[in-house]
Structures are given as C-alpha cells and as structure tokens.
Nucleic acid binder design. Structure first.
Lengths: 238, 238
DNA sequence: ATTATCTATAGATCTATAGATAATGC
DNA sequence: ATTATCTATAGATCTATAGATAATGC
C-alpha cells in the first residue's frame, strides 16, 4: 500500500529496467564496457546509453570517468585484501604452503565471483599508467606483498630467479589471474578448477608434489573461517 | 666515399637520432607507448612526437593507427607460430610432455626477446574487441590450437575442467604470458626462469613431477633445431 | 620524377560544466 | 527543499586528408 509509485528526481526518458540504485546501474554498465572494450576506448556516452540516461547525468553520481573505474578496481581486490589478515592468523601454526594455498583459494574465489569479471581491469595499461588509480595500486601492492611474504616461506630454495619476494608475489598474482582468463573463455570456475589453479601456484614455487595435496586439504578445512577483518558491517542488533 | 650525406625526401624539423628506417622508428615509438599507456590512450600525435616527426607524417608510412598496432601484434606471435610445424615434427617420436615443454620454451623465448615487450599487447581489450585485428586473432588462434592439441596429449585425465583443448590452450598461453609480466617487473628471463615457467605449464596440465625433468632435458636438446618453416629468407647465393 | 617530410585544417568526437526541469518530501 | 534527471554547449582534443615543399635520383 505504501509503495512509492515513482522515485524523487526528474523521471528518465527511458525508465529504469531494474530497481537497483542508479549508482550501481552505472557501475554495472561501465564494468561491462570497460572489461570488453577497455577503459580508454569506452566513452561516457556509451556508459550512459547502456544505463538509459543522458551522458551528463553520470556526473551527478561520479566526479568523472576515472572515479567509476577507481570504484570498480577497488571492488575487485577488496574482498581478498580484507581477508589477508585472517588468513595469516588461521595458518600461523600450519605449513607455509597451506597458507599460500589458502590465500590463492580466497583470491580465486573473489575473482570468480566478482560481477562482470572486473578482475580483468587491474592489468589494463590505463590503470597502471594513470595517477588517478594510485589508491588502487597501493591496495593491490598490499596484496602482492602478502603473496610475496607467504610464498617466500613456502618456496623451494631452487627458485633463485624469483627470489625477490615482490617478484614472486607478482608472478603468483599473474598465475591466479588465469581465473579471469578462463571465465572470459566460458569455463566455469568450480571447486575443481580452483584447486588446479591453487596447486599450480604451489608447484610454480617449487613445492614438491608430495606436499601439495596435504596443503590443499588443510586449506579447504580453513576456508570457511576466512571472514573479512576490515569493512565488516556493524551488528544488526546495536 | 660514396656515403650519402642526406636521405631523399624533405628533411625533418628534428633530425633522426638513429639510422633505422623511418617505418621502424614509428613502430618502436608506438610500441613503447602502446605497451605502457595502452592503444586507445595513445594518440598519433604522441607517437609522432616521440619519433620526431609531425603527426600527419605517420600516414605516409601507415594507413592509420590500427595498422601500426596490427604490425606489432603480428611480430609478437610470428616467430613462435613459424616454428610450430617444426616443433611437432621434431617431437613426433618424443613424449607428449616433451613437445609441450619445447613449445613453451620457444614461446617464452619469443616473448623474452620481442622488442619493447610487445607480447603484452595481445591481451589489451582494444585488440580483442576491434575487427581491425582479425588477422592477428586468427594467427593467435592458430597458436592456441597448437597449445591445446599438444597439451591435450600430455595432460592427465584428472584435468576435466580444462578438458576442452581450446580452453587448455588458452590457459597455457596465459601461463606463458607471465614472461611478459616478469619482464615488466624487471626480472631477467634467463634459461633458469624459462625452465621454471615451462615446467609450470607441464605441472598445470597434471604431468607428474617425475616426468617433468626428463621432458626438460629432451626439449633442451631439440631447441636449437627449431628453425622457422614459413617466412624463411631465400639463400644468399641464389 | 620520386621520396619523405611539412603546414593547415575539416569533421568527428569526447569530457565536463551550467543551468533548467520534474519528480518527491516536509 | 531536495533529488535526479534533462538540455545545451564550451573547449579540448583526435584522426585523417589535401596539398605544398625540400631533399635525392636519373
């Protein structure tokens, strides 16, 4: 009965096809275009058209095109980064390869579930070259450091070339990105696929085959306990 | 004595700093910009400025920006594709994992030696979305097919998710691209690094650890015999 | 005559701002 | 009054073409 017939604000020329907040509609449309055509090749006009609003109306929700991408980038890493602390706590008394396996699993899951496969945005050259995304690069560096830190403990001494933890972290992040690449090719990222990717991370670090399966088992037992540490919503009952 | 003082054609406002053919100068400048900023974010004016010519002068050498990228893309895969036939011949009587290892080694070498790290261009979204690069995508698909064909023979039956040879090929190409990613991070791609990456390909296919080292040995013995089949220059003495 | 540049510019964008308008909320 | 859109447009690009110019080659 008390249902609003319309929203505040001037009505759109093309009525919205969804009830999602307009800001989310913009993010969704932009994500699809950025992922398929690339950031620089996508015009604000195209985004607006996809949403069903006028180009200028975007600027009511965002200060510019950069801010749209910045928000999408942030969302593509935030879920994993917020779980890193918890992962390290949970695996403090486990083998180092279990810690790496768990981090990889969580990250693969994030990339597999991210709307519109926005995990692919991180490697677009626009992102790595413009200062507008410094905040994201800093967040991502945090994740690369975690990969490097954890993997260095697990890595075989034979891994001289990637001995620098930072390089090792970058390599592993690239490996895990195969998740987004498979998603683009239409491969469903189920538990088996995730295990193959995570195992590949361990093997790429030189972990002997005999230690991979135990790490997989231990990590699987812990994954349900990886709750985000930051950005947790306050309890409903407060 | 017979050295020309100048070249035909109107002199440049800024004299060339190299004797390389102008077309190559353009490709080199464009490659650097495309790789760092991305194709769409790079203007023809920037390319021209880097070369030291006027923006319009680019169009004497290329029909447009697309043609510059198309040529760079072609060069980034051609060396490997031209060796695929020879690789399959050489390994016809070897184990399937030796064939895969050799293909990976050759590809890693191509990516490691490609000027300006142009191997990174293939995954830019501009490339995958515009029809202007259909020829390249077709060449690249040929390579993906080879990866898929060879890897399917080497893969363990446990690899159900990537059972489709095409998907398996895509996955392996993504893995090998870590070469360009490491290059960007400043890691030198020496023989040891190449072996780590190639071994990771085998392990990602589920090849047991005990069969990796023998494959690496066999492949190393064959790599010097991988001469391109297509595009070979005619003998000097003809 | 041929080659390789130059100058000038048309036409098509594209981003972002200014200010009007049409809803609801109070 | 507030919200969320709209219309209109300034100013800054950016790509590609037309045609002039300054070298060498024959």
């Amino acid at each position: 009965m008390s249902t609003r017939r319309t929203q505040p604000g001037r009505p759109r020329l093309v009525p919205a096809s969804t009830t999602a907040p307009p800001r989310e509609q913009v993010l969704h449309a932009a994500a699809q275009l950025f992922v398929t055509k690339g950031f620089s090749a996508t015009s604000t006009r195209e985004i607006a058209e996809k949403v069903g609003i006028r180009q200028a109306s975007l600027y009511y929700h965002f200060t510019g095109k950069d801010e749209i991408l910045a928000e999408l980038l942030e969302r593509s890493v935030r879920p994993t980064v917020d779980r890193v602390e918890q992962i390290e706590k949970l695996t403090a008394s486990e083998s180092p390869e279990t810690a790496l396996y768990l981090l990889a699993l969580v990250d693969i899951h994030t990339l597999a579930e991210a709307p519109d496969n926005i995990g692919t945005l991180a490697t677009q050259p626009d992102v790595t070259s413009s200062e507008a995304f410094d905040a994201f690069r800093s967040t991502r560096a945090e994740l690369a450091d975690a990969y490097g830190r954890i993997a260095t403990r697990a890595a075989a001494p034979s891994l001289a070339p990637a001995a620098d933890p930072r390089h090792l972290g970058e390599m592993l992040m690239h490996l895990v990105e195969v998740t987004t690449s498979l998603r683009s090719s239409g491969v469903p990222i189920d538990d088996t696929t995730a295990d193959i990717i995570a195992s590949t991370c361990l093997r790429a670090c030189g972990v002997p085959g005999s230690r991979v399966a135990p790490a997989a088992l231990s990590a699987a037992a812990l994954i349900d306990q990886t709750r985000p540490v930051r950005a947790q919503r306050p309890d409903r009952g407060n």
